[in-house]
Write a protein that binds this DNA or RNA. Structure first.
Lengths: 106, 106
DNA sequence: AGCGAATACTTCGCGATATGATGTATATCG
DNA sequence: CGATATACATCATATCGCGAAGTATTCGCT
């Protein structure tokens, strides 16, 4: 996938990965992989950014001798997802603009 | 619209604006405005970038005492649009991932 | 016991890029 | 004559994905 396009989807995608239940970095990576691949450095950067923006909160848990940081989505995080759904209408209209005039077989 | 998301759509959107007939900066701005707003500096930066990448060619035309640069899409430019259609499937799958578990009323 | 792979998170530097600010220049309209 | 529209260019700034490299522990395999 085009890098630029990816940029617009990463944040919401990470939020979606922790929407239904709290999760941690490594698990989020695996959950997102089928939809959108990203490097570890990117994910942890994003998580930090989302935390700073108060779209999620963090709690550290010891698990099998290793530390895990569990991420929990906030109300603002949920709102960010809702906003994305609104943006989706604009994206659809852009998609139609881009494919305008093409045959209907695609 | 979210800036990051915009980034991924700008290039294809500009290409789409010159797909059916050659056009120039100011006109492209007006054509894109209903779908995606962007500043002039951004547009000319993009046009330069697309030219460097051989996705379009430029010819300068005098028009009413002013110079106009007409942009013409290349085969590679058309291919970029086709590639975007392929990416669209991935985008749809991401959209479903993000909205998964929500009520069907949206 | 030895060792590679998986788990788990961090930091740094690089390149790409959207944008506001600013500049240049001409045409049109009141 | 001044405001607005047309038309394009350049620069500095801030943001961000990612590869590279690092730190540590656990687990399966031989």
């Amino acid at each position: 996938m085009d890098i630029q396009l990816k940029r617009g989807l990463l944040d919401v995608c990470v939020l979606a990965a922790i929407k239904s239940k709290d999760s941690y970095g490594y698990q989020i990576m695996k959950d997102m992989k089928p939809y959108l691949e990203l490097s570890e450095s990117t994910l942890y950067t994003i998580l930090k950014r989302l935390e700073t923006a108060n779209l999620l909160t963090v709690r550290t848990v010891e698990h099998g001798g290793r530390l895990r940081k569990y991420y929990h989505i906030t109300g603002a995080g949920l709102k960010r997802i809702e906003d994305f759904k609104d943006e989706w209408r604009e994206i659809l209209s852009i998609y139609r603009f881009v494919t305008k005039g093409d045959d209907g077989n695609e």
